[in-house]
Design a protein around this nucleic acid. Sequence first.
DNA 1: AGAAAAATCATTCAAATCGTCCATTATCCC
DNA 2: GGGATAATGGACGATTTGAATGATTTTTCT
Lengths: 300, 300
Amino acid sequence: MPTTGNLLSPKDLSIAIGVSESSLKRWTDRGLLQVSRTAGGHRRIDRNEAIRFVRARKMSLVRPEILGLPGSVAANPEIDLTTLENPDEAFLELMRRGHDLGARNHLFQRFLDGETIAALADGPIRESFDRIGELWHHGPEGILIEHRATEICVGLVIELSKMVRNDRAGPRAIGGAISGDEYKLPPLLTTAVLQEHGFRAVNLGPNTPIEVFELACFTDDPEQRPDFVWMSINDLPPEAPGLSSQVIDFAARCVEENLTLVVGGRTARELDFDRVPSIPVHGSMTEFAAFVEGWNAERN
Amino acid sequence: MPTTGNLLSPKDLSIAIGVSESSLKRWTDRGLLQVSRTAGGHRRIDRNEAIRFVRARKMSLVRPEILGLPGSVAANPEIDLTTLENPDEAFLELMRRGHDLGARNHLFQRFLDGETIAALADGPIRESFDRIGELWHHGPEGILIEHRATEICVGLVIELSKMVRNDRAGPRAIGGAISGDEYKLPPLLTTAVLQEHGFRAVNLGPNTPIEVFELACFTDDPEQRPDFVWMSINDLPPEAPGLSSQVIDFAARCVEENLTLVVGGRTARELDFDRVPSIPVHGSMTEFAAFVEGWNAERN
DNA sequence: AGAAAAATCATTCAAATCGTCCATTATCCC
DNA sequence: GGGATAATGGACGATTTGAATGATTTTTCT
């Protein structure tokens, strides 16, 4: 965790500008960068001095968020996001304002600090969209915020998923959100989590009919057949009761054919899986990730 | 070891391009390639700037992976794409089979060879989705292909758009697809083309009500007010005649308020803009890009 | 308060990069 | 083809960088 307050350690700043700690300390010794010292002789760099330094030398920043820059916090002095007790609140605020770079810096800092994609999905992302979703009913402004935030977040999740993807052969997974479910983010996040765990994951996206799931899963071509299927259910329209039984039929067939099916999403638990009790139903991405880890361990 | 992160050393890039370090340094000194400097005077090259450079100079990459880019197109043994006379056919075939890596190789190779995002949008991407769209009516298999291809392509376009984006201040653009238009790709491509031309572009995504456009465009906050608005119309439902006149009212108000509005998309020409003849309507991304270029030139 | 863990110190050294010069190769113009 | 011009790649000593070291300081935890 970067040093709190207004003083940076040499390591923090060296990470921010993507240079070795040794070099940074040499620069301070040459007087290129002012430092104060603790009683014990450790260097402490004032944030403003750090900003002056990178500006004066036109250096590019690898991780601007460490300086509290991306044009985000510094350009929006009205709200100092660092004072917010809950980091998820900061992300929400950035998304609400459509501040794409700030949101990217925030999310990526947490990712690089070790949070998994699943944790980010259940934390800042879900939190933000829960709150932003409430706005949606408050007229055009809510819709504007929701649309903008969704597009930004789609881009960020895709960027994250390309960072964790490895192209070696892993188990094949396929999935999507069912008919009538128009949410783009849950399938994307699920794909990202699977890629994080070494899968070759195919995303069918939102609003995918059951027939398409069946076709994709029960193909005769052994090259195409997946090892793992997931289904996201975030918006089960009440006017489609037939859909519910279709899903359960599909689940039953997956059990028959010995294919792992996992169901998740906000309204997934509303389905009655008593007929096929072996179908795991998850309420969060963290749960899902834990299951995937177990499945992977069992497989090897 | 290639430098980690987003900054390359001259040696890294020289190896990637397959050219001597001397030449590379000479190019930077002539300003052909932007570099930042460490405090000690060593050159550091931003990845996106490196990509811009090799593209502008039409150089071939000996080691593309150093820039995080795919290798040659030939990396697809299963499909011999070289026998296809039309390269767009090759892309279609890759998308049809859901071959994400192959599609990425193909698209990025052409991008590196100098094709603009607009050209790729009108070429392989539009071509493929025209053909894939026909399949859509042929039952589940068509839907499967279309869903999978869409998700792959969304990822690729986002990746491309992040390569051409520069974070310096440019004119602000905002836009999206109107109510009832659920296509995700056109707004994404439009955003990418605008970023390619230096805009700070905000994407409101598909299915955006007119009221949201009005709110976003005619806000009183001068910090938020865009310089440029675009609207994508790919699927005007005939049962919504009111929508048509709403769009035209919005266009009229844009003219009044001296805000540039551009309309595009498959069914855009079906609208009757006689009342506001100064609204440009485009049928292709190439046309749109040409207009944007002109607008930019006029502005400076 | 005190012990254990983590971060930082100053220093050293090999590898990378600097700027510059020069011989060789490619390109252009007649 | 021949000569002028520009671009390339390699070599040079000087400087900068990044990683490792063992000693010290700061932070964390009980």
